[in-house]
């Protein structure tokens, strides 16, 4: 259970939740947790409500949000071509709520992340002037996400943050501990980090970080 009235620490995570994105999701949420924030993802909410209602509630409960818009490029699925609009849609909800003053415009902050530094100028040029960070398309994406988020937190939340290098090293150590424990824990089946769901990963990262730096 999340602690009540955690608005000041909540960060709404707007990103893909598929297997392909897991290698970026993991450093993204770990950095949030290591910097003292509480990730809010739609999958944590009650199954009884519609997904969009859940998302709006999470946004209203979060002072911060991070939006990965890297999937806006058109993809091919057989003969069909499509683009994924969930992330831009949810970013639009944040902007809409802010500007209707349903959430406090001065209080909340949003970071938009993408693989390319200036692609949004072509796909969503109205975002000009927003906080944007790019993490590239090469093998250092995971490390770049840690640095991009940490630097944004240092600029907009608290300048006294752990260094990006330390958070990256700690993330590596956490994954090492997690995979080691999964390997040694006899459950009758082989469980790997890739099998861990979004919600499970957040839970285990919180527990590891809490024991590491908060106890």
């Amino acid at each position: 259970m999340e602690e009540p009235n955690s608005f000041e620490k909540n960060i709404f995570i707007n990103c893909p939740f598929d297997n392909e994105y897991k290698q970026l999701f993991r450093p993204l949420v770990f950095t949030c947790i290591y910097c003292g924030l509480i990730p809010q993802v739609a999958q944590l909410q009650d199954a009884g409500q519609s997904r969009l209602v859940n998302i709006i509630q999470l946004i209203k409960n979060s002072k911060f949000s991070v939006h990965d818009i890297s999937r806006v490029a058109v993809e091919k699925d057989g003969d069909e071509e499509y683009a994924r609009f969930n992330m831009p849609l949810e970013l639009g909800i944040v902007i809409g709520l802010k500007n209707c003053q349903l959430i406090d415009l001065k209080e909340t902050r949003a970071l938009v992340i993408d693989t390319h530094p200036h692609r949004y100028l072509k796909s969503m040029s109205d975002l000009a002037g927003s906080d944007i960070a790019s993490y590239g398309k090469d093998e250092r994406q995971s490390e770049n996400i840690v640095k991009g988020l940490r630097d944004w937190f240092a600029s907009h939340i608290n300048p006294k943050q752990f260094s990006a290098k330390l958070i990256w090293a700690e993330f590596n150590e956490f994954l090492s501990d997690l995979s080691d424990i999964l390997k040694k824990f006899n459950m009758g089946i082989t469980v790997k980090i890739e099998d861990i769901t979004v919600i499970e990963f957040i839970y285990y990262a919180k527990e590891w970080v809490k024991a590491r730096i908060q106890e």
């Binding site: 501990d177 424990i181 824990f185 285990y204 527990e207 590891w208 024991a211 590491r212």
Partner: peptide, 11 residues
């Protein structure tokens, strides 16, 4: 149980 082992490993 896994969380407890992780907390222990972290410390």
């Amino acid at each position: 149980e896994l969380a407890e082992r992780l907390r222990e490993a972290s410390r």
